[in-house]
Amino acid sequence: MNAAYDLCNRLYVDALVQPRRLCNEGRALAAMVDRSPIKGKTIVIADRGYESYNNFAHLERKGWNYVIRVKIWIPMVFFRACVCPLAESLIGMFN
Rank of each mutant, 00 (worst) to 15 (best):
S89K: 15
S52L: 00
K39G: 07
F79E: 03
R61I: 00
K41P: 03
A57E: 13
L11M: 09
W73R: 15
V17R: 13
K41M: 09
N9Y: 02
N95E: 14
L29Q: 00
T42Y: 06
S52W: 04
G40T: 01
A3Y: 05
M76I: 12
Y5Q: 05
L11V: 10
A81Q: 15
S89C: 11
K71D: 02
V13I: 15
Q18T: 03
V83Y: 09
N24Q: 09
N65H: 14
N24W: 10
L90Q: 06
M93T: 08
L16F: 03
D34T: 09
Y50L: 08
S89E: 14
M32G: 05
M93F: 09
M76T: 08
V33A: 00
A30N: 03
D14R: 04
I43V: 14
S36F: 03
C84G: 07
V67M: 13
P19C: 03
R69N: 07
S52M: 05
N9F: 05
A81V: 05
M32H: 06
N95P: 10
Y5R: 12
N95C: 11
S52T: 06
F78V: 01
W64F: 12
C82K: 15
L29I: 01
M93A: 09
R61S: 13
N9D: 08
D6Y: 05
R48M: 08
P85W: 06
R20N: 07
K62N: 09
R35C: 09
K39F: 05
D14V: 00
A30I: 00
R69L: 06
I43D: 06
Y53R: 15
R61A: 15
A46R: 04
N2R: 04
S52V: 02
A87W: 01
F79M: 13
P75T: 07
K62I: 03
D6K: 15
C23Q: 13
I68N: 05
V83H: 14
P85C: 05
G40D: 02
V70M: 14
L29H: 00
N24G: 07
N2L: 05
A15V: 13
S89L: 12
F56W: 06
